[in-house]
């Protein structure tokens, strides 16, 4: 493994922000993997660290394919991580809304530019991402539909679900979108945690990425078998929003099969303890996402069901 500083930023009173990359193998740029672009993405950094550990073992035992180079960046914005912030320390801008970056631009544009230059030219790009709203969801891979990446490639991860998302205007400055514009086939992998550590979900995502790398021939060690991936359009997922504000209680965990008309959650009045809303599903299916905070506002996405 070659550990190198991909981009460095000076600060008036802190150590430099050195974005560390871990390179394995050599030759053709095969896969680049990016972990935390935000300060709260601890799980995403953790997954990368576990991948680095595994890749070191694979490299030592000669199981990285010849003429294949793999780059892993566990964490870009650790400045914010170290002070408990989600976005950039000073301007609160989001590095993952600054791609492809601009070397003469503002600070986070420069960071995005510096990192993106090192991420260009890879055949595949994998970004570990999180949902903006906190909740539990089944690990899955997502593709931003630009016409460049083949959705069927998501099957290589062997995760249960592959979601195709139609990009919105605010998606056009993300790493995933720009990777594809610069002709890297890009995927976003979602693990069931963001600011904490979930070992089970971490192992599942690490196995999925190793499976993907084996499938494209970047590594030679076969990973544990995965699922036959079901490819779904994001717009086809049935979403349930809360009809009231209060204390939220989910009655079923993510991954559960549910029946049409089943009560799957409740909203309780925080003052008198009365149930003010029963959350029922109109369709039978599998609980894909579930809100996990104790308090909930009205019109908050609380369940997503794959029907």
């Amino acid at each position: 493994m070659k550990k190198e500083i991909l981009y460095s930023l000076k600060s008036p009173y802190r150590d430099n922000l050195d974005v560390i990359g871990c390179r394995f193998g050599s030759g053709k740029k095969s896969v680049a993997i990016v972990g935390a672009t935000r300060g709260n993405k601890i799980q995403q950094m953790y997954i990368c660290s576990q991948l680095v550990r595994t890749m070191k073992r694979l490299e030592k035992t000669g199981k990285i394919s010849p003429n294949c180079e793999i780059l892993i960046i566990p964490c870009i914005n650790y400045y914010s991580m170290n002070i408990g912030k989600r976005f950039w320390t000073m301007g609160n801008t989001d590095i993952n809304r600054m791609f492809p970056g601009y070397d003469q631009g503002e600070t986070t544009q420069r960071i995005a530019d510096g990192v993106f230059r090192k991420l260009e030219g890879y055949e595949y790009g994998i970004q570990l991402v999180s949902f903006y709203q906190t909740g539990n969801f089944l690990p899955h891979v997502k593709l931003m539909e630009t016409g460049f990446t083949d959705p069927a490639d998501m099957e290589r991860f062997g995760l249960k679900y592959g979601i195709v998302r139609k990009p919105r205007p605010y998606d056009t400055t993300t790493l995933n979108y720009n990777w594809q514009i610069w002709e890297t086939k890009a995927f976003s992998v979602y693990s069931n945690e963001t600011s904490g550590i979930d070992d089970v979900s971490c192992s599942e995502v690490v196995a999925a990425i190793l499976r993907f790398m084996y499938s494209i021939g970047a590594i030679t060690e076969k990973s544990v078998p995965g699922y036959k991936t079901e490819i779904i359009n994001e717009s086809d997922i049935y979403q349930i929003r809360s009809s009231a504000g209060g204390i939220f209680r989910a009655d079923v965990p993510t991954g559960s099969p549910v029946e049409q008309g089943q009560v799957i959650g409740r909203i309780i009045d925080p003052i008198d303890g009365k149930t003010i809303s029963q959350i029922t599903t109109e369709y039978a299916g599998t609980v894909f996402f579930e809100y996990n905070q104790p308090l909930i506002n009205e019109s908050t996405m609380c369940f997503k069901i794959i029907v």
């Binding site: 504000g245 308090l295 506002n297």
Partner: peptide
């Protein structure tokens, strides 16, 4: 207007 979690509305 939308109900917030505890005894308040976002208005």
């Amino acid at each position: 207007e939308t109900m917030l979690a505890v005894n308040e509305k976002l208005r």
